[in-house]
Each structure stands twice: as structure tokens, then as C-alpha cells.
Design a protein around this nucleic acid. Sequence first.
DNA 1: GTCCAGGCTTTCC
DNA 2: GGAAAGCCTGGA
Length: 293
Amino acid sequence: MNFNIIEDNNKVIIKDILDFDPKHIFECGQCFRWYIEEDLSYTTIAHNKVINVKKEDNDVIFSNTHMEDFKSIWYKYFDLGKDYFAIKNELSKDPILKEAINFGQGMRLLNQDPYETLISFIISANNQIPRIKKSVELISNDLGEYAGTWNGKDYFGFPRPDKLASLETEYIREKYRVGFRADRIRETSRRISDGEFDLQSIYYKTRDEGKDLLTTLPGVGPKVSDCILLFAFDKEEAFPVDVWVKRVMEYFYLKKETSTKEIGLSGARIFGRLAGYAQQYLFYYARELGIGK
DNA sequence: GTCCAGGCTTTCC
DNA sequence: GGAAAGCCTGGA
């Protein structure tokens, strides 16, 4: 680790860390379980634990935790083993990316739970971020384990697959406001719960192998599978192409209307093994600034 | 085999 | 009232 960590009264503080901005991490669209507080800190839940993250000058304060959890859970979750200085340095050779990175300089790719990420991104299809967040919260509050309270709000973990697999499609549709995605959620959860689909095995597969497997699940196509590979399985070359990435790639790089499939191939060609990071800086940049709209 | 149009729930802007 | 971090189906 190239930064100093200290522990203090239910807090862990990283001193003088570059490349860590809670706003850029949580609002860049990779994660749906965060809540901004009045003091502009962010509260999130993962591994059935609640944590509050606040940036103060060049320090980041993690509250409601301790060093043991920090080392065993949050270090990996916040991708602190990666050298973002080197990643950004490499990608900044591209002048367009340099702008996008400058805009979202404190972004990091989280390592999230595979099943929660899978269901969250099935919900994301033809959907809006505020609605996706609401559906994920409704599911957790109804089926998840109580994980803690922060600033007066109770937090519940995302349930295990057997919970959603055991429900009727109509219940899922109406209770969680997921519309036509309800049966995809139920059937995908059932396959995992019944052991027909081994989600953990994807950790040990390549991006292409993982993509072929994930797209056999209902509700998982090219874009959603790349999101899962990038946000849960640490496949750095995964390049999810959504409407914003399509717009920003057409606007800056390709200069003409291009099919989604072709944009995916261009991402691999232009950005190579770091395509996932490039995608995330570009997505955040394009969406916040409305580029190409 | 590949490509593409149309349909899909609900709500946010 | 259009659009939304897309996927699935059917037909060319």
C-alpha cells in the first residue's frame, strides 16, 4: 500500500490518498446502493455491513468500521490494491481520455457481490438510475438481513438467490416495481439457487468465456454481461456499451453512426486490456455533461 | 448464421 | 409525453 492508514474510534482513515473521490466512485453508475448524506458523505452497504465514506481534503474517512473489516472486506471492495496512478497515466496518452479522467479523477472500479450485481443490472435494462436504486432497495428491505443503522436509516443486505427464486413473478413485478424484468429475475435466481448455474466459476474464466456463460441467463445480454464482468469479477478488459458509451464513442472517436456491436470491437481495439476503466471514465464524462445527446 | 424492428413496465425529467 | 447503463422474439 502506498498510503497511510490509521484507526480511530470506530473509524479508519486513509491519509493523503489520491485517486479516491466518493462522489466519482458512487455516482459513476457502477453501483446502486449508496445514499448521499447532508454532509456530502456517502453511506453504502456491502457484505451485510454498513459503512459511511467521507472525503476531507486529501484524507478519506471510513466510519462505522474497524481495521479488521477494513483489511478483510473494504480494501478489496474499494479496489485499493490497484495502482490507479499507473492506470490513468497509461490511458491519458489518449487526449480525449485525458479530459474524461480529469473530470472523474477519483473514480475507482468497485469489486461488488456477483449475484447482487447480476440482478441489479438485469433491472437496469431500459431503466433509469433512480428507479433501479429504488427496486434494489425494495428487494433488500423485503428479503434481506438487517445489517445496521446509520444516521437514522436502517440498512438491509441484498438477499441470497433462493429468496427471489421462491417468489411468484407477479409478486416480484408488483412489489419491487420491475415490470417485464420480473420473470428474468426469478428464473435467473432459480438457476443459481438450484445449482444449474455456477456464478463463482466465472472468477476463474476469461472475459469471453464469462460472457458466453452469463448471456445464457435470461435478462443478460451483451451489455449487462460486461457490467457484471467489470463490476463484480474484475475483468478489466470488459467494455459495456450502453447508449452513453455509444454516443461518446461516435462523437469523439468514430465520427459516424455505428452499431453497438462495432462500438464494442472499437473499444477493445482502441483501449485494449484497460478498456473497462476507459469505458467508465467515458461513461461518467458523457452522462454528466450530456455529450452527444 | 447475422441483422434489425418492435414490444416491453414504470417513472423520471 | 418522450426517454430510460437493453433484452427477447420473430422475420428477412
